[in-house]
Amino acid sequence: MQIFVKTLTGKTITLEVEPSDTIENVKAKIQDKEGIPPDQQRLIFNGKQLEDGRTLSDYNIQKDSTLHLVLR
């Protein structure tokens, strides 16, 4: 499925993911596309910070959902 990740600069990254993917996996995909190390990434969905060990389906993230990427 496709999800979107919006950065603070207003750029939107499109990712191909599975609901069973962990947040860690998603961060690795963002690193592949953008070169941002996962330990600098914080992903936010519906105002909640997403934890590495959880999956997209844990957070009820579905296709065409938009996550927000904050760098630390």
Rank of each mutant, 00 (worst) to 15 (best):
I36Y: 10
T66V: 04
R72N: 05
K11G: 07
S65M: 09
K27Y: 09
Q62A: 04
Q41G: 06
D39L: 07
G47L: 15
S57I: 15
I3K: 00
T12N: 04
D58P: 01
K48G: 08
Y59I: 05
R72L: 04
A28G: 07
G10H: 07
D64I: 04
K33Q: 11
V17Y: 14
Q49V: 08
G53W: 14
V17F: 05
E24V: 02
T7Y: 06
T22P: 14
D58W: 09
S65V: 07
G10N: 08
G35N: 03
F45W: 12
D64V: 03
V17H: 08
E51A: 06
N46H: 15
V26L: 13
L69D: 01
G35M: 08
Q40S: 06
E18L: 08
G47A: 11
G35Y: 03
Q49I: 14
A28S: 08
D39P: 04
L50K: 00
L50N: 00
K6L: 12
A28V: 12
Q2G: 09
I44S: 12
S20M: 11
T12Y: 07
D32L: 11
E24S: 14
D64H: 10
V70Y: 09
E16K: 12
E18W: 13
E24A: 02
V70E: 07
M1W: 11
T55L: 10
I44Q: 12
H68S: 04
Q2T: 12
I30T: 03
M1P: 02
N25H: 02
A28E: 06
L69G: 01
K27G: 01
K6W: 05
N46E: 14
I36H: 12
K48D: 14
T12R: 03
D39N: 07
T12H: 06
S65K: 02
K33A: 14
T7D: 07
T66N: 06
D32T: 14
L50Q: 01
K11S: 12
L71Q: 05
Q40G: 09
G35T: 11
L8H: 12
L43T: 00
R54P: 02
T14F: 14
L43P: 01
G47E: 05
L71M: 08
K63W: 13
R42Q: 07
L69A: 02
E34L: 06
N25E: 11
T9D: 11
G10F: 02
S20T: 11
Q40M: 04
T7V: 12
T12S: 09
L69Q: 02
T22L: 13
E24H: 02
L50G: 01
G47T: 13
E51T: 02
F45N: 05
E34D: 02
T22Q: 07
T14H: 06
L67Y: 01
T55G: 08
P19K: 04
D32M: 10
Q62E: 11
D58G: 07
T12M: 15
I30K: 00
E51K: 03
I36S: 14
E18M: 11
R54G: 10
G53D: 10
T14N: 10
P37G: 14
D58Y: 07
A28Y: 08
I23H: 04
T9R: 02
F45V: 12
L56P: 01
H68G: 03
L50D: 00
D64A: 13
L43Y: 09
D58H: 15
I61T: 02
I3S: 00
L15S: 01
L67G: 01
N25W: 09
S65Q: 03
P37Y: 13
L8P: 10
E18F: 11
K33Y: 14
L71A: 10
R42M: 10
L56Y: 01
F45G: 08
A28Q: 07
I44G: 14
L67R: 01
Q49H: 15
T14W: 13
Q40Y: 09
P37V: 14
T12G: 11
F4G: 04
E34T: 02
N46L: 14
I30W: 01
Q62W: 09
N46F: 04
T14E: 07
G10W: 02
I36E: 05
V26H: 00
E34H: 04
Q40I: 09
T14A: 11
E16N: 13
L43D: 00
R72S: 14
S57A: 09
